[in-house]
Nucleic acid binder design. Structure first.
Length: 663
DNA sequence: TGCCGGACCTTCTAGACAGCATGTC
DNA sequence: CTAGAAGGTCCGGCA
């Protein structure tokens, strides 16, 4: 099947031809046969890099009306915005929290790219363009299984489809265990495929020996440092059994060096941020830049990193980059992240050592992917990383047109080899499960349904949820009790009121506070905490910016910052000496630990507006530069929500405005 | 007395969405 | 209930 046979304008056909796209990939053909170009609802569960974006473009271009492309990450939204904007004759708009593109101007676009939260927010704020859509494409739908963000995805999609029954829905998913359930939910045709443009082989490494799933194998020389270690073991005797091979880090280093010697780039995934940095520094000694002959470009990338800031992290990154290596995790500022990402795409970096950020983020394909750690510290101690996640890491292997094939290597030892192979090489990815039943998620979406006027009774709320993945899987009835609880909670929180019209006949309406809470896109618990905080602050004789920060940092919408043992006493003392400026009685909070963390965050933010530098704060409070940035960003948002809430309850706290303007 | 090595203890752990008005190029 | 790596501390042995 050829591109020019599709119902596309000749300029669009030319556009694709210029990029070498003339023939459809098998999964793309299957999507066309399923009717993406004819307005049919389609779910495509295919690997990353198998041409999902093209399927999205087909749907959007042939929809005969405005289209919406929903994706989970702002960085992804920008990436897609650029590829769509390159299409001839297509007006594209972007709408994410960090990107200016105001309300009604989106109505004129052929395609709008947005995050799911932004779409949800647009609906809550009554944006008109969402009702005029002819087509919605949801990228990474499997994320509806995500704890916090999954529910908003499914409720948003359900609402969109309910308000616009003719809406064409195209959902793109990673390969998961139950794509049929998703297709069934959307009444869509299912296209399933594990075809990839570049062959991918996955293997398990024990010592320097890798056994791939296609029967091939590979041996790399692992540094001799571990030989000595093995001698030591013998002396100790039975203490350690000889099954313990060389160190996983050494194996990883050898695998990276091997790929680079062959002219290929590598991605190495590890468990924690610090280990990503450690690995990168360890690899910096290998002279990878020389092996790839990229010294000059690597030095240029290092200079770019240096220009971002003078943080310790920035200096470490620059040093690594100079040696042709980089690390990547969420503690990096976005400036550093994009330096690393673009340097890698330009082949100016041989290897990135990363936490899972990179697995789900922007496109950074490599010749070889090494997954050093398959277990990670989680809620229940050491947990196996979900198969889906590991597959997404592995899926980054293989650059179309550049690599003969992609290789994914899972580093194990003799003890774990079988388990790793079974779980990740043979094993199926997990099924996607709805998280809507979570009480917190339900509260916010029940409030949104009431505040927007879509529902005025519990029955109508259930109607809204009827189109949800949860309802299709479990039956909407399963939600009835939980919704009743959510309504009670919201009434108790002063977000929703029952307007009685008869004995059993009452209507649910959002209170003024409930309405602005929903429109400001904060969770009900956050709105409640802010309202209480504002009232308390108004009663304080000396409310300062610290007061404002304490209130917004004590909400579930502010991420908490780690409070080390050594710091605890210090923060406690800080809280005591500043108790006149805090809205919380120190003997009161039932979650004292959590509150102390909030105080720490508030203190950081207060010093930030007081003129402290990133370098200083990062060092003194042991947080990543990127963590500081994201907290500042959130504080701006929450302070504006606090201002709006203050206005609706008629309580003015000047310190809030002061804090906000100084941010 | 001073240095070094090792047993033992302590610390720490992935990621990232949202509002809005005003100023600036 | 379940881990494991890195860094710090303290003690003992040795020159």
């Amino acid at each position: 099947m050829r591109v020019r046979d599709l119902p596309l304008s000749s300029s669009v056909v030319d556009h694709f031809a210029e990029r070498g796209v003339r023939e459809l990939y098998p999964p793309q053909r299957a999507a066309v046969e399923a009717g993406v170009c004819g307005g049919a609802d389609v779910v495509a569960a295919v690997p990353t890099a198998s041409g999902k974006t093209f399927v999205a473009q087909l749907a959007l271009l042939t929809a005969g009306g405005p289209g919406l492309y929903v994706c989970p990450l702002r960085a992804l939204a920008r990436e897609k915005y650029e590829t769509f904007a390159a299409l001839p004759g297509v007006d594209v708009g972007i709408s994410t929290g960090d990107f200016d593109a105001t309300g009604e101007e989106l109505a004129g676009n052929d395609v709008v790219v947005a995050t799911s939260e932004k779409v949800d927010s647009a609906i809550r704020n009554g944006a008109s363009w969402v009702d005029e859509l002819a087509c919605v494409v949801v990228d990474e739908v499997h994320l509806l299984g995500a704890k916090r963000r999954g529910p908003t995805l499914e409720v948003t999609l359900a609402t969109l489809r309910r308000r616009n029954p003719d809406l064409q829905t195209v959902a793109l998913s990673a390969t998961v265990d139950n794509p049929d359930a998703i297709a069934d939910w959307l009444d869509a045709a299912l296209v399933e495929s594990d075809w990839r443009p570049v062959e991918l082989r996955t293997g398990v490494a024990v010592g320097g020996d890798v056994a791939f799933d296609d029967g091939t194998s590979l041996s790399v020389d692992v540094a001799s440092a571990d030989e000595a270690a093995r001698d030591d073991d013998e002396e100790v005797g039975v203490e350690k059994n000889e099954a313990d091979g060389p160190d996983a880090t050494e194996v990883t280093a050898a695998l990276v060096a091997d790929a680079v010697a062959d002219g290929g780039q590598c991605l190495a995934f590890v468990r924690s941020r610090r280990e990503a940095v450690d690995l990168a520094e360890r690899l910096a000694d290998e002279g990878l830049a020389e092996k790839l002959g990229i010294e000059d470009a690597a030095a240029a990338a290092a200079d770019e990193a240096t220009d971002v800031d003078g943080t310790l992290t920035g200096r470490q990154l620059a040093d690594c980059l100079r040696a042709g290596v980089a690390f990547h995790h969420a503690g990096l500022r976005s400036g550093h992240r994009s330096v690393v990402e673009s340097a890698f795409r330009d082949r100016d970096v041989a290897c990135i050592c990363a936490t899972p950020t990179l697995a789900a983020g922007v496109n950074v394909p490599a010749r070889r992917v090494v997954v050093r750690d398959q277990r990670r510290y989680g809620e229940a101690g050491m947990e196996w990383i979900p198969t889906l996640e590991v597959h997404q890491m592995c899926g980054r292997a293989g650059r179309p047109g550049l690599d003969p094939h992609g290789e994914a290597v899972l580093v194990a030892d003799a003890d774990t080899r079988a388990a790793v192979h079974e779980r990740y090489v043979e094993g199926e990815p997990e099924a996607v499960e709805s998280q809507l039943a979570d009480p917190g998620a339900l509260r916010t979406h029940v409030l949104a349904a009431v505040a927007t006027g879509f529902a005025a009774t519990e029955t109508e709320i259930l109607d809204v949820f009827e189109g949800t993945f949860y309802a299709r899987e479990t039956g909407a009835g399963g939600l009835a009790d939980a919704v009743a609880v959510a309504v009670d909670d919201l009434v108790a929180a002063g977000m929703v009121a029952r307007e009685t019209g008869g004995v059993e006949d009452y209507r649910l309406v959002a209170t003024a506070v409930g309405e602005t809470t929903s429109k400001q896109y904060v969770r009900p618990e956050t709105g409640e905490r802010i309202v209480a905080g504002l009232r308390a602050a108004a009663g304080l004789s000396d409310a300062t910016t610290l007061t404002a920060f304490e209130v917004i940092c004590d909400t579930p919408d502010m991420q908490d910052t780690y409070l080390g043992n050594a710091e605890r006493a210090d923060v406690y003392r800080f809280a005591r000496t500043n108790s006149a400026h805090l809205t919380t009685d120190m003997t009161e909070p039932d979650d004292f630990e959590g509150w102390l963390e909030s105080v720490k965050t508030a203190r950081i933010l207060d010093e930030w507006i007081g003129g402290a530098t990133v370098e200083d704060l990062v060092e003194r409070y042991r947080i990543g530069p990127g963590d500081l940035d994201s907290r500042v960003e959130r504080a701006e948002w929450l302070l504006s929500a606090a201002e709006a809430l203050g206005e609706t309850i008629g309580v003015r706290v000047p310190a809030v405005s002061r804090a906000r303007s100084r941010l």
